[in-house]
Amino acid sequence: MKKLLSILALSVSCVFSVNAAVVVIGNPAAADISKSDAKKAFLGKGSSFVVYELEEGNPIRSEFHSTVTGKSDAQLKAFWSKQVFTGKGTPPATVGDASGMKAAVAADANAIGYIDEADVDASVKVILKP
């Protein structure tokens, strides 16, 4: 029984150590933003930010939206489909990975995106830890 509990505890700790800490990033000159402002920006609601998303299927994207916008991948896809169909908005541009996200955000003072906190470097600034 003790062996079974040890294996279970080890399995649970491995699962939790794999979880990434998603952060919102901006240009190094950017100011911090609130979670509410990030939600509005990533849902295209009256923001002055240039927003970048990771591609669909990326687990960091799923975690970010679950935490910040409260939407699952399916809900997010439905939301943007409706926005496009009704002419109320277009989804943000997508980038393939963390290095693409950092390059896009670093190149524009008004740009924001999100990555795993472990991928942050001097080219960008963490502006929100949701």
Results as ranks from 00 to 15, higher is better:
118 A>N: 12
80 W>C: 08
88 K>S: 09
32 D>R: 00
41 A>S: 15
60 I>D: 02
118 A>K: 15
31 A>V: 01
40 K>R: 14
4 L>G: 02
29 A>H: 06
57 G>K: 04
33 I>E: 00
88 K>T: 13
20 A>S: 13
92 P>Q: 12
121 D>R: 00
19 N>I: 07
5 L>C: 12
129 K>Q: 14
84 V>T: 13
53 E>P: 03
108 D>T: 06
127 I>H: 03
79 F>A: 12
72 S>C: 10
50 V>C: 00
119 D>L: 01
31 A>M: 04
9 A>P: 00
1 M>P: 15
55 E>K: 09
66 S>Y: 13
102 K>I: 14
128 L>S: 10
35 K>E: 13
75 Q>S: 12
130 P>K: 03
98 A>K: 02
106 A>T: 15
74 A>C: 05
36 S>R: 07
23 V>Y: 02
79 F>P: 12
26 G>Q: 03
81 S>E: 15
21 A>Q: 14
86 T>C: 07
34 S>G: 08
61 R>N: 02
3 K>Y: 07
64 F>E: 02
16 F>I: 12
53 E>C: 05
118 A>Y: 09
70 G>H: 14
57 G>M: 07
104 A>E: 04
74 A>L: 10
71 K>A: 10
107 A>V: 07
77 K>A: 11
65 H>S: 09
87 G>L: 06
93 A>F: 03
69 T>A: 12
4 L>T: 11
95 V>S: 03
60 I>F: 04
10 L>F: 10
21 A>C: 08
118 A>H: 07
52 Y>S: 00
91 P>T: 05
7 I>Y: 09
16 F>H: 10
99 S>W: 04
16 F>D: 04
43 L>I: 13
114 Y>F: 15
52 Y>H: 01
122 A>Q: 15
58 N>T: 06
116 D>S: 12
116 D>P: 05
91 P>W: 02
117 E>A: 12
46 G>D: 14
114 Y>C: 01
12 V>S: 14
19 N>V: 11
37 D>S: 11
6 S>T: 09
25 I>P: 00
103 A>F: 06
26 G>D: 01
68 V>R: 01
64 F>S: 05
108 D>E: 10
93 A>S: 08
22 V>E: 02
74 A>H: 06
